[in-house]
Each structure stands twice: as C-alpha cells, then as structure tokens.
Design a protein around this nucleic acid. Sequence first.
DNA 1: AATGAATGAGTATTCATTCAT
DNA 2: TATGAATGAATACTCATTCAT
Lengths: 216, 216, 216, 216
Amino acid sequence: MNDDSEILSEPCCSRKERQREQHRREILGAAEQIFARKGYHAATIEEIARESQFAVGTLYNLFKNKDELYHRVIEGFICQFREELEEKVLKVTDSEQAIAALIDLRVRHFERHREFIRISLELSPASRLDPCRALPKDLQQQHERYVKAVTAIFKRGVDQGVFDAVDPLYLTLGLDGIINAFMAYWSQQEVNGSLEERIHDLQRQFIGRIKVRLTD
Amino acid sequence: MNDDSEILSEPCCSRKERQREQHRREILGAAEQIFARKGYHAATIEEIARESQFAVGTLYNLFKNKDELYHRVIEGFICQFREELEEKVLKVTDSEQAIAALIDLRVRHFERHREFIRISLELSPASRLDPCRALPKDLQQQHERYVKAVTAIFKRGVDQGVFDAVDPLYLTLGLDGIINAFMAYWSQQEVNGSLEERIHDLQRQFIGRIKVRLTD
Amino acid sequence: MNDDSEILSEPCCSRKERQREQHRREILGAAEQIFARKGYHAATIEEIARESQFAVGTLYNLFKNKDELYHRVIEGFICQFREELEEKVLKVTDSEQAIAALIDLRVRHFERHREFIRISLELSPASRLDPCRALPKDLQQQHERYVKAVTAIFKRGVDQGVFDAVDPLYLTLGLDGIINAFMAYWSQQEVNGSLEERIHDLQRQFIGRIKVRLTD
Amino acid sequence: MNDDSEILSEPCCSRKERQREQHRREILGAAEQIFARKGYHAATIEEIARESQFAVGTLYNLFKNKDELYHRVIEGFICQFREELEEKVLKVTDSEQAIAALIDLRVRHFERHREFIRISLELSPASRLDPCRALPKDLQQQHERYVKAVTAIFKRGVDQGVFDAVDPLYLTLGLDGIINAFMAYWSQQEVNGSLEERIHDLQRQFIGRIKVRLTD
DNA sequence: AATGAATGAGTATTCATTCAT
DNA sequence: TATGAATGAATACTCATTCAT
C-alpha cells in the first residue's frame, strides 16, 4: 500500500516535479522499446537516449544506472498488469468467469507488448540466477502476490465445487505455463484464427478441463 | 589409456582424435556451467577457459568462436534429451504410459541440468528474436521434431479413445508449458516432497485431467 | 578562445565544433607519429591514444576504427602536399622553374615529415596489394591526379622545346623515382651538404639532364 | 667471401645434413609465397607451415623464429640477385653495356618475383626504422655492396668519357629510383609493350640521357 | 537541469612460440 | 626428428558511467 502508483502520474506537487515525471516516462517508453528489441545486454544506454530524444547524461540524472532503468521498465510493465488484473479479474466474483478474464487479460497484454516477450522471459523466476539481472525484492514480491491472487481464485472455485478438487497452486502454475507455451508458439508460427477466437479456445479448453462435470 | 568417460561419443579411431573429443567435452561441460550461471552475454570466454582448466587459445582451437561454443552446448543438451526421448518415451506403445514417461524424462533431465534452465528458456522460440542468439537451422528443427513426436503420441491416445478429444497440439503445448512452470517454481521455492513424489503428482494430475472417463 | 592553431580547417561554426576539430587534429598528429615509427600493423591504438593524451574511447568517438584513422592520416598528408603543389608548382608557368619548384617541394615536404617515409612508401601503388591497407578510392585518385599534373608540366616543356623530346610520363615517373631514391639514401646515411645545397644539386642534375641543349 | 653461398646447396656433408637443407629450402619457398602475398605482419607461421607441408614445430626446429625466417627469405632473394649481378653485370667490361645489363636484370628479376614487390619495398632502407623489421647487419651490407658495385661501373664510364661527368653515386641512386618507379607503375597499370620492349625503352632512355654526346 | 565528450575497464579473438609425445 | 595441441600475451573495439560546461 506504499505509494508505488505514483508512476501513473497523479498530479504531482510542483510543475518542476511534474515535468521530471514526464521525462522519466518518456525515457521508460524508449527503454522498453530497446530492451524489448535487443534484450538487456545488447541494449545500449546511448541507443535508449537517442530513442528517447534525451542526452545520455539526462538518463543518468533520472535513473541511477542501466540496471535501475531496466527494473523500472519491468516495474511499469508489472504495475500496469496488476492494475488491469485488479480491475478485470480480481473484482469478478464468479471464479469461472474470473479465470476466463485472466486468460483474456494475459493474452491481450502479451499481444499489446508482443516485443516484450524477451523481457517477460527474463522475468521468469528461472532466469533470475544471475545476480546482475536479479530483480529487486519489491518486484519479486509482485510476482508472488500475483501467484497468490490467482491461486485464491482457483481455491474459491474448488471450494465452491466449480472446479475439480485439485491443488489450486497446481492450477495456477499450470495455467500460467500453458498460456506461456501458447504465446511462444503463436509468436513464431503463423497463427490461424483471430485473437478473439484463440482466446476463446484457450478459455474453453482450459476451463472445460478443470470444471466439475455435473454428470459425475 | 585413461579414457575413462568414453560414454557418448562414436568410437573414434586414433588416440589423438579421442583426446581431442575428450577435451571438447570438458570444455563443453565448463561452458554449460558458465552459460547456465550467467547467460550468453554475461558469460566470458576467459571464465569458461578457467573453469575448463584450459587456456583461452585452446578453446579457440576446438571451437570457432563463442557462438559456436554456445550452440554446441545446446546441441549436446538437445541430443542427449532426444536420445533418451527415443529410448524411454517413443518406444512405449501405450500412450498414457508414454506421456507419463515423457513427464518423468523432462523433469529428471531438468534436475540433472538444473542450472541449465536459463539456456532452456533462451531456447524457447519466444526468445529467438535476437539474431546473435538465433539457433542454427539444424537445432531449430530438432525442437520442431520434438513437438511433432509428442503431438503424435497424443493423437494416438485421442484416436484410441484414451484421451479426451482435444487438439493434440494443444495437449503438447499445454504439457510443455505446465512442466516449465513447475520447474521454474521448484527452482526458486523450497520444494516439499521427493523428486519421485513430485513427478508422480504431475503425472497423475496431468493425465487424470485429459483421460477419458469410462463412466461418461 | 584559445584556438591557437586554426591553421588548416575551414572556419567552423560553434566552439564545440572547433574543439572537436582540434582534438581530431591532435589525434591525427599522434597517429602520424606512431604509424610512421611502426607501420600500420605494429602501431597500436593504445599507443596512439597515449601519444595523443586521449583515452582509447575518445579515438573511437572521433574515428570509426584503426583503418579510418590511418586513411585520415594519409589524407592529411596528401591534402597538405596537394595544396602546396597548387600554390608553389602548378601556378608557375615556366616549365623548368615548375620542375625545380616541384623538386624543392617534394624534398622539403619529406624533410618536414621525415618519419613519414614509411607511410609514403606504403602509399606506393606497389604496396597496395594488401586489401587491408588498400586506400579508399578518393585517395587513390589524388595520386593519379598528381601524376597527371606533373606529366602535363613536362609535356608543356617538351612542346615548348625546353625539354628533350621524351615521353612526359617517363619523365614524371623517373623524377619521382629519383627523388624517392635520394630521400631514402639521405634518410639512412649521414648527408653532407645543407638541405638547400642538396635540393639545388638535385635540380641542377635532373633538369640539366633533360634540358634541350641550345648548341645542338 | 665467407661461405654464405652454401644456401644454393653445394653437396653437403652427410645425407642428414642435405635433407635438412632441402627442408629449409622448401620452407623458405613457402614463406616467400606467403610473405609476398600478405606482407610481414599479416603472414602467419601456421599458413607458411601449411603451404610448406611441414608442421609448425618443424619450422621452429629449422628457423629460430618468424623474424629469422623473414630475413632468410630476403637473404635468398638478395643472394640470387647478387649472383646474377656478378654473372651478368659485373663481368661486363663495357660500362654502357653493363648498365644495360643491369637494367635488364633488375626488371627481369622483378618480373620473376612480381609478388615480391612488397618485400622489395619493405627492404628499402627507408622503411627500416622499425627495429622489428630491421634487417640484420649482413643483409644491410649486401645492399651497400650493391650500391658500391654499381657506382663503380658508373665511375668507370665517367672516367672513360662514356658517361657525362656526373657524380656516379647520383647515377646509381637515380637509376635505382627510376627502375623502382617504373616497376611500381607497371605493376598497377595495364602495360603496353612486351617485357623486352619495355626493357629496351628504359635502357635507351636512361643511357641516352647520360651518355656523352660525341658532337659536344 | 541538460548535455555529450571523455574515460578506461572489459571482451572476443589471434598468433608466435613451446614442449610432450 | 617431426609433430601439432596448448599456451597466454597482445590488441581492436565497446559501452556504462562521469563531469565540466
């Protein structure tokens, strides 16, 4: 509940402050582009500076170093997702609909930031062995909170007899893995079917597979 | 005559040749370690040399450059997996047992090369945007062949009425994603349960979820 | 405002620009020293950097790479010579005096850049087999233009009956070769006679040898 | 007069010795090729070894290091020239004919080793500032002896009233420079005229220019 | 505050030379 | 004696970071 949502620019005190925020946002936008296109190591500060139309020195006035810039990009990414998650998923009371909404959100989020898969992957807990790319604590917690929130939805569904009696954590991890796999597949193969159709398929398949069958 | 670990290589003619192969293998081992620990860019040839107890120049005598070294590491990884796949999965006629064997193989393979998750992820089609890390054609085909082989198993199962009537490709992708997700999860959390137990759970959960129910 | 040596450069707009030019010139000066002393391959960027009192990175900010640096050194060399050629030789109408001026210019130019003989030799068409040292087109043309200009002087002299009826191209090549030979000789032997005397001897000998004799 | 002409393989003592000499000669042949093609720095020992069909180690058994190999190549070059010089030029008593023969020899020698211009240039006294390419004393003396021998011919001619009363050293240097210039020119331009014609032209031009005119 | 030139540590790669077989 | 694998110092080039203007 600490004020980490200042990032979305609630009107800040002074005009100076507001401009500073604006500049940060522009730089973060450029950085997202470049990191997404090249990955962490191959991206250069100079290129980010050029893309953002600021001087290199300015980036260093606003961000401590390359690492922090990277983390802030990811943070923005995560925050945006979390907000949409709260808005479109967590508020849905029916667990089946919530999961459907989650699938929808994840796929659309991915499509909107398609170039970002690379970062998305580097985000994966699995690749965080390298201390140089280790996410700072607060960002790691975000992911854990996400897992907990989704797991809670599944638990509710199971408890209510909507979903099969499976360990909800299993369901969370499974759903996440499945979505990742499909996005990776889609991102390299020519896909058939519109986005809506593909989302709908995923929803039907996944939910159908874990929903309690009335006839049982 | 101390060729102790002649395990995987085709029987080589001369002693010279055999030693050369042995050295290549040692270097590949070191490279796997370092690449896994640091990722492609952050890994340095010098560190790999140190780890392998050879001089830098020796690495370059045996491998064209850093890229080739990286590709050979992945190739070894893939080949080993493919051999075990053929031996332990593709030869199994019963589709349910085949999938169970596949899950077992994937998880054990991962455990054996735990540090390798990073490379495993970088292998993912999704991260192959960066031309510098683009896999050579032959290695890409290996992955496609894997997908096809597994899909064939599912298709057989579906045709025989063992599995629910789901698009086999969906099942392949889904299974892969789920396994990845669990491995990532296990690799960062303290796991409870032995490896066998966890494998067994995964098998039960996944297969149970797609198996045709006789009572239907 | 301490732009002390604005000698050769076009009047540059901003102070920034002017300083940049100044730094380029300083680096080129150091590079000339080192290339002259060691030749292309044996010269190292680090040494040039040390000599120029800049950091290695700075050289790379101002020049694309070692090759470009080398070419720019030669270019500076050629341009300076060409300017003096136009000023002191090509403007002279009397062909005998023009050739005398040319000899004077060549020798003095050499004395001023004595260390540069090596580059001067590497410039020779004969040594341009090595693609890595191949001069860019524009610099090659400069040399061809030089040959043409001098040949034109000789032709004029021959046509006017000042010089013997010899193929002017022969005269050009011959003069060039003779000057080179003497400079090489002087550069390794102890010379006797002042620079002026030696120039005067060369002029008298060469011109005397090709001048039409009135008594004929 | 020390026996440095053993290089041309007078029958050596033991068979072992003779074979050793044979190997040296083969390696020198390969080295000449490679040095000529690439220049000193760009030539690699490994390539020379490959060309000579010997192992790298063998080269090092027969020659101290790259430098010595280079010097021996040049030595062979010089010795061959000197022998022909003695045979075809120094034995000629008529100074005009001797100079004609010298021109002929120089040009043919060049044509026979056309690729060797690079080394020929690197041989030039002017480029011997770099200690790493400095020729050993004995080879430097060879060149000085050549200069002396040719100068002696000119002196004789002058003394006998065949050539104009010019400092013979001037004539030697001048002739050398002229020949160099023409060879360089021919090596890059399409030449017109057969080798014989070109040699004849050079002889006529040069000698005609310095010959005492009877009508004086 | 913004700039971007200067910095120099860091990295992939090459190649002369050695030495165990 | 011949071999060629192993060595590691040397070198061109990059790029995150600093700081004077």
